[in-house]
Amino acid sequence: MADELTWKDLEVGNIIKEAGNASFRETGDWRTEKPILDKEKCVKCALCWIYCPDAAIKPSEEGYYESDLYYCKGCGICASICPERAITMIAEEEK
């Protein structure tokens, strides 16, 4: 994206006006392992949500907390702190 911009596209002082536009960036491709949630075990305590450094876990309509793999970097914190062991990390398959 940056390499498509010319000097004319930059704001005065290189100010960025679109707040939070980094959310367009995919960080899921950093991952070597991904979290799998076992909904049978999940008690919806939201610990995984609050402890995700990447804000990659989102509350779902049904009240679960699910990883958004577009952002999830696969650190495994969610799996390690889940009191019900409802999350397991599995190897990312080759694309």
Partner: peptide, 21 residues
């Protein structure tokens, strides 16, 4: 009310353009 970012860092793919501007 209009959150802007001042002073973002400029990697090699854009620093030169900032200086020309």
């Amino acid at each position: 009310d209009k959150p802007m970012t001042h002073g973002a860092f400029g990697p090699p793919d854009i620093y030169s353009e900032t200086k020309l501007a």
